[in-house]
Design a protein around this nucleic acid. Structure first.
Lengths: 188, 188
DNA sequence: ATGCTTTTTTGACAATTGTCAAATGATCCC
DNA sequence: GGGATCATTTGACAATTGTCAAAAAAGCAT
């Protein structure tokens, strides 16, 4: 089965018809490392599903790149604010490795919401689940020390340090690269 | 019109039938300052709408209270993680002022989702909008300096310093009360 | 392998913020 | 009104983290 559909079905069961309709509307693309899925100033029209590989969302803050989130295998990603309100945003989405990625257009998705309440339910449920994740991320980022945040990240994504440059991770954790390097070299 | 319903209708138009069904299911309650809407270890079964007053969400971190969010007039609030997954959580919700608050039960809301796709759409849309707010909050909290975060808060909620103790605000901003006091006393 | 580029580490110092303690100011309640 | 409680400010110092600069290590292409 299509991995995107299989992923969605974890959250809520949908009818064969709804599933077929979805399947017809999603498209597949291969990306090389460092390609952009989305850029600042654009309106984001697609919701992506990472089958394999990894991407990051980042923006510029006082001329510096700030990595805001990572998307690994089996993650839905989009430039959320831009996608929902169909406004240009400040965010970039870029692959960090060669990646296999599925996507569905916003217009298409919304048409499916009209046609199949079960698909809209899926939309609601995944949004809720991603809200919870973001909230956890927020609490972790905002109220824990840099060392705790790093250890937390290692627990959730043990492979991440093998796959993602230190600078991106430091930026994601909200600390300088030098500080992260020192945290890593410190004895436990 | 009921202020809760009026608030929801900003996001998406619903039929008179759906509106009546909603109206029958919501209930009203007055709370005094410092009352709890929800406590750690409980499963949160209600979604609240603040007509007047203010509440905060907080939890304990190493024995210290940490204020995670504020809810003022015309805000939907709940202990999100607990409400969605119906699991006990670590969060408290407490009023900060005498408050007028509407609520709807989770079971009831989900029954309405089954009956009226338009209400489920409303659920999806509000979740999306609250996701966006949380993302903004995340970026602001994580990648800006304490002074910038404070000024940002003043811009969004100018009245907040008149209504909320400094300690809560400091905790919300992720800094110590003393640091916030010094930021405030500093010349612009 | 060799050089070239990128990434990571290290050092020295400065800036920011936290902590503890005490003083001041505000509010509540009887 | 006055004492108790709570909230805010201030000071001194310590801890954490950032910044800049340079060195070391790792990765990549030819």
């Amino acid at each position: 089965m299509n991995p995107f559909i299989a992923y969605l079905k974890q959250y809520y069961h949908i009818s064969v018809e709804a599933q077929q309709a979805l399947e017809e509307e999603i498209s597949f693309q291969q990306f090389e490392k460092d390609e952009f899925l989305h850029k600042e100033g654009m309106v984001c029209r697609k919701l992506y599903f990472i089958e394999q590989g990894s991407v990051r969302g980042f923006h510029y803050n006082d001329g510096r790149e700030v990595t805001n989130w990572f998307g690994l295998e089996s993650n839905l990603v989009t430039s959320f604010h831009s996608f929902i309100d169909q406004q240009p945003g400040y965010e970039y989405i870029q692959t960090m490795e060669d990646s296999l990625i599925w996507s569905i257009g916003r217009e298409t998705l919304y048409a499916l919401y009209d046609q199949f309440p079960a698909i809209e339910r899926l939309g609601r449920i995944t949004c809720e689940q991603y809200y919870i994740r973001l909230e956890d991320r927020y609490v972790n980022a905002h109220f824990k020390t840099a060392t705790e945040r790093y250890q937390n990240l290692l627990q959730i994504h043990p492979q991440i340090t093998q796959r993602v440059p230190l600078g991106f991770i430091a930026s994601y954790l909200g600390i300088s690269q030098e500080t992260l390097s020192r945290i890593r070299s410190k004895p436990i």
